[in-house]
Simulated scan of single mutants.
Amino acid sequence: MTEEKRANPAPLGLSGFALTTLVLSSFNAGLLSAQGEGVVLGLALFYGGLAQLVAGILEWRAGNTFGYVAFFTYGAFWEWYLFTAMGFTGSVTPQGIGLVLIAFGIFTLIMWFGTFRANLSLFLTFLFLWITFFLLGIGSINGNQSLIHAGGYMGILTAIVAWYTGLSQVIAESIGKKAPLGKAVLS
């Protein structure tokens, strides 16, 4: 008996992460008015949150610990963002949000070490993401809008690289080629 071919859940998780991150980062960078920031909430619930949680579960089922931990954690991050932004978690200070962002930055920094033997595209996604979290976290704690804007721009760059990482795999599979993701940092 042959095993049924299964889809790779990583492009779904990366795309959900990238699109939601791109939209929120556009607000953080100051490119869009903060009045429209509520548009991120639906994305945080479904595409950034639920889609990544599903991708994480599918990575677990495939035996990919890194993909499972990454997608499930960032899916949970977007669910936290949604609940916090909607006020379900009670009163939250900018310092509290900054602490959570820095904690996610620490998590991402540790996960980044796990990308050193992966492809360059994934390496850059995690590198840019931990920098994004630290900029946003420190900016939130200190009330420094310049750091928050820098974190927004870094988030946009993170989203672009994450989207490339995921969608290049979809395109490569559809045309029967290997995805051009760059060589591993460490061989």
Rank of each mutant, 00 (worst) to 15 (best):
G96F: 05
A103V: 14
T115Q: 03
F83W: 09
Q52G: 08
F77Q: 00
M111E: 13
L109Q: 01
I57R: 14
G90F: 00
A34S: 13
A62C: 06
F66Y: 15
I110F: 12
T125Q: 08
Y74W: 14
L101R: 03
T108L: 04
F72P: 00
A62T: 07
G75T: 07
A62R: 12
F46R: 10
T108D: 01
G75C: 03
G42V: 12
F104H: 03
G90Q: 01
S33A: 15
G98R: 02
R61M: 13
A85F: 04
N28I: 02
G48Q: 03
L122C: 07
G87T: 02
V54Q: 03
S91M: 11
V69A: 12
T73R: 05
A55L: 08
V40P: 00
I57W: 15
T73G: 09
L43V: 08
T84C: 10
A44P: 04
N28S: 12
L41Q: 12
G56T: 07
F72Y: 07
F71Y: 06
I97S: 11
A51E: 04
A76F: 09
V92Y: 00
L41M: 14
R117M: 04
G98A: 03
L101C: 08
L45G: 09
W112F: 15
P94I: 09
G105P: 09
Q35L: 10
L45R: 10
A29E: 02
N119T: 13
T65V: 14
T125V: 15
G67V: 05
W60L: 14
Y81C: 01
F107R: 01
F126K: 07
V69K: 02
G56K: 05
W112I: 08
R61E: 14
G49N: 05
L53S: 00
F123L: 12
F107A: 06
Q52R: 12
G98E: 01
S33Q: 11
L127A: 15
Q52L: 12
F113P: 05
A85N: 07
E59M: 09
V100W: 03
L101H: 03
A76W: 01
T108C: 06
G30C: 04
F104R: 00
Q35P: 01
G90D: 02
S26G: 15
Y68E: 06
G96W: 02
I102M: 14
E79G: 07
S26W: 14
L31Y: 13
A118D: 10
M86P: 05
A44F: 02
T89A: 13
A62G: 12
A55W: 05
G63L: 08
L122G: 06
F46C: 13
G114P: 00
W80T: 06
T125R: 09
A62Y: 05
L127I: 12
F113I: 11
A51G: 07
W80K: 01
F77G: 00
L58N: 08
G49T: 05
S91Y: 11
V40C: 07
G56L: 06
A44T: 04
F126T: 05
F83Q: 04
T108W: 01
G87M: 04
M111R: 03
T65A: 14
E79L: 14
G30T: 03
G87A: 08
L109P: 00
L41K: 13
L31E: 10
Y81N: 02
T108H: 03
L109H: 02
G63D: 06
L82T: 10
G42R: 04
A51V: 08
R61I: 14
F46P: 06
N64F: 13
